[in-house]
């Protein structure tokens, strides 16, 4: 069983060992981290966190546009770690997540990708 270390920068750098195959939301909540969530399938953005080091697989998320992805946001209910990672969690990490869409429009390359079927990557 592959495991990785998650460091939560805005929780005094607390660290947790998590399984590579499990979504981060599930692993961290099971270890007592109080995290927001909503839909639990990658569609609603409520559980977004900011990834500041390492890589995750979040192919199943359908909530983020490309600007949010480029700013480092990850959807914890579907993201799985692919290395040791560092996260900032909760709404204190959401500074760049929300923007007034009229004052700050997206460039064409920043739009959300069209919905498409991803091969199931297992539980």
């Amino acid at each position: 069983m592959t495991t990785y270390r998650v460091t939560i920068a805005n929780r005094e750098n607390a660290t947790f060992e998590v399984e590579a195959r499990r979504p981060l939301l599930e692993s961290l909540r099971a270890q007592g981290v109080d995290l927001p969530y909503g839909c639990k399938y990658g569609g609603c953005i409520t559980c977004a966190a900011k990834l500041t080091a390492g890589t995750v697989n979040q192919r199943r998320q359908v909530a983020l546009n490309n600007r949010q992805i480029n700013a480092g946001y990850v959807i914890l209910c579907v993201a799985r770690p692919m290395s040791d990672i560092t996260l900032e969690i909760g709404v204190d990490s959401h500074g760049e997540l929300y923007r007034n869409p009229f004052l700050d429009p997206l460039e064409p390359h920043e739009l959300k990708a069209s919905p498409h079927q991803e091969p199931d990557d297992g539980p």
Partner: peptide
């Protein structure tokens, strides 16, 4: 839902 839940993009 996947469009409106994360927020509003005018584009």
């Amino acid at each position: 839902p996947n469009t409106f839940m994360p927020g509003f993009d005018l584009e």
